[in-house]
């Protein structure tokens, strides 16, 4: 698999605080990589390191296969756009002026692409309105537009939906999906709004206390957190026979426990098992979402 970003044992230590502790992650090309973690887990620190805002204490990372200690990392960074924490925009400038600034920084020959970018993020009608008078969602979209100048193929968004109203969240989500599908941009999104992330991400990285707890694809997460009925019986061999006869999907865990991946008629199943002298000891619905999966990995309580 081709990776846009790989980190290897990346560590960042501030005076008395270890923000990243040997973090290793892999962002596949073309993915929407959801970077999940509690506040202070190290998400923003990692983004600052890959954007070159800070230097790692130890470990290394590579962008498009180019290591961070190589001189060519600058070229790799030009292929990425980023919105770190707050949108990086001049508040006393209009949307167009902000984009012109970014175009100048990138050394782009003309401003021809600006109207298209503004249209892409839905800010084409802001005219002479200065960014300081924009809503939070508009600022966020302008930040994304600025990061898209220069046509990057890797976009890093740090908490892009933080503080947005439901309408703003939907707009940002649609924009990210559009960028990923239409422009084939690989996206790394850090967030702790798990429900929102689960509507977007194709891959997940779960971080806690500066360490990568688990990396998995959306399919793997679906399998791990699939809605099912956990059943405890006196003999799972009998259960398997009965479920096969009912044509239901299941997974046996032990001699007494199994998961059934279907909506079952409890009475019908219990009667069928009773006929085979198999007792039903307990039945429990297991509806593990990304949220509960995350909590099961990093600990804490579901809120």
């Amino acid at each position: 698999m081709e990776y846009v970003l790989q980190t290897d044992n990346l560590t960042k230590k501030y005076r008395n605080f270890q923000a990243l502790n040997g973090l290793s992650m892999h962002v596949p090309k073309g993915a929407i990589y959801g970077f999940v973690g509690k506040n202070g887990a190290g998400k923003t620190t990692l983004i600052r390191l890959i954007c070159g805002l800070q230097e790692p204490t130890s470990g290394e990372f590579s962008l498009y296969g180019i290591k961070n200690n190589s001189r060519d990392i600058v070229k790799s960074r030009r292929r990425m756009g980023a919105v770190v924490e707050t949108p990086a925009i001049y508040l006393d400038m209009t949307a167009e002026e902000n984009l012109k600034q970014q175009y100048l920084i990138l050394g782009l020959p003309s401003y021809d692409g600006i109207p298209e970018l503004l249209k892409l993020v839905g800010l084409e009608n802001t005219g002479k309105k200065k960014a300081k008078h924009f809503s939070l969602g508009m600022k966020q979209r302008l930040g994304i537009a600025v990061s898209l100048a220069g046509d990057p193929d890797f976009l890093v968004l740090d908490e892009p939906v933080n503080g947005l109203d439901p309408q703003g969240i939907v707009e940002i989500r649609e924009l990210i999906l559009k960028l990923n599908h239409e422009r084939q941009i690989t996206v790394l999104i850090s967030s702790h709004i798990l429900d929102e992330l689960s509507r977007l991400a194709t891959h997940y990285g779960i971080i806690d206390h500066g360490r990568m707890v688990r990396e998995l694809s959306a399919q793997e997460l679906d399998a791990a957190s699939r809605k099912c009925v956990c059943i405890e019986v006196s003999d799972t061999a009998v259960l398997a026979r009965v479920l096969d006869s009912m044509n239901l999907e299941y997974r046996i865990h032990s001699e007494t426990t199994a998961d059934i991946f279907a909506k079952i008629n409890v009475t019908q199943l219990t009667i069928a098992l009773a006929k085979e002298n198999c007792e039903v000891l307990s039945i429990q619905e297991n509806d593990e979402s990304l949220e509960s999966f995350f909590i099961s990995l990093v600990g804490g309580t579901k809120q």
């Binding site: 600058v74 925009i89 990138l106």
Partner: peptide, 18 residues
């Protein structure tokens, strides 16, 4: 200071050679 308060310095650092 506006470069730091508005965060535009981050865009510059991302593209600067040095």
């Amino acid at each position: 200071g506006t470069d730091f308060s508005d965060g535009f310095i981050r865009n510059k650092l991302l593209t600067a050679d040095h």
